[in-house]
Design a binder for these strands. Structure first.
Length: 270
DNA sequence: ATGCCTCAGCTCCTGAGA
């Protein structure tokens, strides 16, 4: 089975591209970020027509996340339980025996700013919640726009961008702490092309020059790690007319072995 | 050069993104 995440920077603008992409890449689950629309405008019908059911958690102007899936999703939860937040950033659900969390992490704007402090507290809130989720649901996938690079390999200009937003020690510490709960960066489980990024600035021909950052991630839990067959960034839609500034990331899990694992009770429901 | 794109909206500029 395949799961993917994509920050589409306005679903109003990008709906045709998302539909086209799903037709070409019929993944089982797609997490979307930055819908920038309220729930009453969410295009359920357009997704239903191509075989997807959807749950959305929208918001006016900014943020907004959704989970699309070929099979029905249950146990849908919005945002981080236990962390009060005005912004629509997280949606999670049970799909195909997995607990799937789609998240739009705060940008943080600039180290030292109020938004950076919010990002830090949000990351702590997420980590506290994911810790308990992993106990209840060992088969867990956390994916989305993390707005954090793991290390210099994720940065087109590590020297020039040192200590700037997405690249600070504080953010990377939080990301490592999250991973330390028992998660794995699916992308780095495999050899990857050098200078692989998931976001490129709209300005200064960022994509054409491959001046980007890898800030969109798919984390899989310990139990799922042996089942990860591949992970890639699909740059194709970044070449569209009026593209999102982010590219989708796709992970493939070995489903047959997954089913055996579940049947043998190695990974059981809490 | 506190800009360069792009998007939403209290829309012909501003705030925010990353």
């Amino acid at each position: 089975m395949k799961l993917a995440t994509w920050n589409i920077n306005s679903l109003t603008v990008r709906l045709p591209q998302v539909v086209d992409w799903l037709n070409a890449n019929p993944v089982d689950v797609l997490a979307l970020q930055e819908l920038k629309m309220t729930d009453d405008r969410f295009p359920f019908e357009a997704f239903h027509q191509i075989g997807y059911s959807a749950h959305c958690f929208g918001q006016k102007t900014y943020n907004g996340v959704a989970l699309l899936s070929r099979s029905p999703a249950t146990g849908v939860i919005m945002n981080i339980p236990g962390f009060a937040d005005d912004m629509a950033r997280v949606i999670s659900a049970n799909v195909e025996g997995l607990r799937v969390i789609g998240a739009y992490f705060p940008n943080g704007q600039e180290p030292g700013s109020d938004k950076f402090e919010y990002k830090m507290s949000w990351l702590k809130g997420l980590r506290d919640w994911v810790r308990t989720e992993l106990v209840k649901n060992p088969r867990l996938v956390l994916m989305g726009d993390f707005n954090i690079t793991f290390d210099d390999a994720d940065v087109w200009d590590p020297v020039g961008l040192k200590d700037t937003i997405h690249c600070t020690d504080d953010e990377r510490y939080q990301l490592r702490a999250l991973v330390s709960l028992g998660l794995h960066d699916a992308f780095r489980l495999f050899a990857q092309p050098a200078k692989s990024y998931s976001w490129w600035d709209y300005r200064d021909f960022g994509f054409r020059r491959n001046r980007g950052l890898r800030i969109d991630h798919i984390l899989v839990s310990d139990v799922l790690k042996p089942l990860v067959k591949g992970c890639l960034i699909d740059k194709t839609p970044r070449k569209n007319e009026r593209p999102s500034d982010h590219a989708p990331v796709i992970v493939e899990l070995l489903q047959a072995e997954f089913l055996n694992l579940a049947r043998d009770g190695v990974a059981t429901d809490a």
